[in-house]
């Protein structure tokens, strides 16, 4: 590894003893980048799935009967238990009873990878909050909007798709942003089941290089940047949805 960044951190190391091996050592650098990519993948997949789960839950709440009870049970279960317990349950309890598959080289691999369980677990966790967030948004839409759509012959799906969700989303977008920020932070729990995301990669590096302090600094900065990026995107979306003369 060569270049100005390497030179800078080599110089810092020689002057202060601080060892940012991620920038000076190719292997550590690659592990860290892999961790970063895994964290981003975990976050994006879980965000998308959790929003879909939130919408599905919203729809089920409005459907009444069995579906409503199911959505309520789901929200209670996943909102009121710790996400680390949920993840452990999926990985150790459910993952343990699933059959293993044979891969192309004849090795036994679990049917669902740690990464897969993490995505599922985080989606369900954040999805439960999204159900509540979307519900609060849709409930804040004036009932006159529903009456107007009803009197024009909209079906329930058309009502949700073209009126309630677009209007409710504008109302609940700040809460959704909060939940998505939480979700990104929650992905560090995947460390506990050995998914090589950022925290896991950092821990591997510091246990070999003995640079705990430097890796911690770096982790904080990377998460601050990741979350800032997410918040910036969400705020852009909020602005894009803004309508002249209408304050949700």
């Amino acid at each position: 590894m060569t270049g100005p960044v390497v030179d800078l951190f080599t110089w810092i190391n020689s002057r202060t003893g601080l060892n940012f091996s991620v920038f000076t050592d190719t292997y550590d650098g690659e592990r860290f980048i892999t961790g970063l990519i895994t964290t981003v993948e975990l976050s994006v997949l879980s965000m998308v799935l959790s929003v879909l789960l939130g919408l599905a839950g919203l729809w089920m709440l409005g459907a009444g009967g069995f579906w409503r009870a199911l959505a309520r049970g789901y929200v209670q279960l996943f909102r009121n238990t710790p996400p680390l317990v949920q993840l452990s349950f999926f990985y150790f309890a459910l993952g343990g009873v699933l059959p293993t598959l044979t891969d192309s080289r004849g090795a036994q691999v679990p049917a669902v990878s740690g990464f897969g369980w993490a995505v599922l677990s985080f989606s369900l966790f954040a999805g439960a909050f999204n159900v509540e967030i979307f519900r609060s948004g849709v409930e804040a839409v004036p009932s006159a909007m529903i009456e107007a759509a009803d009197s024009l012959g909209y079906t329930r799906l058309q009502l949700y798709r073209h009126v309630l969700v677009p209007l409710g989303l504008r109302i609940c977008l700040p809460s959704l942003t909060n939940n998505m920020v939480n979700l990104v932070k929650t992905t560090t729990l995947a460390y506990a089941i050995g998914v090589p995301e950022l925290l896991y990669a950092a821990a591997q590096i510091w246990s070999e290089v003995m640079n705990v302090r430097e890796m911690m600094d770096l982790l904080l900065v990377v998460y601050i940047v990741l979350v800032a990026l997410l918040v910036w995107l969400m705020e852009r979306w909020e602005r894009a949805l803004r309508v002249p003369g209408y304050t949700p």
Partner: peptide, 19 residues
């Protein structure tokens, strides 16, 4: 819904879709 397509109704508070 077929009935409502045949019957237009306009309310006191307009109820347009603001978005």
């Amino acid at each position: 819904r077929a009935l409502r397509r045949d019957v237009g109704i306009v309310f006191q508070q307009y109820n347009l879709f603001p978005h």
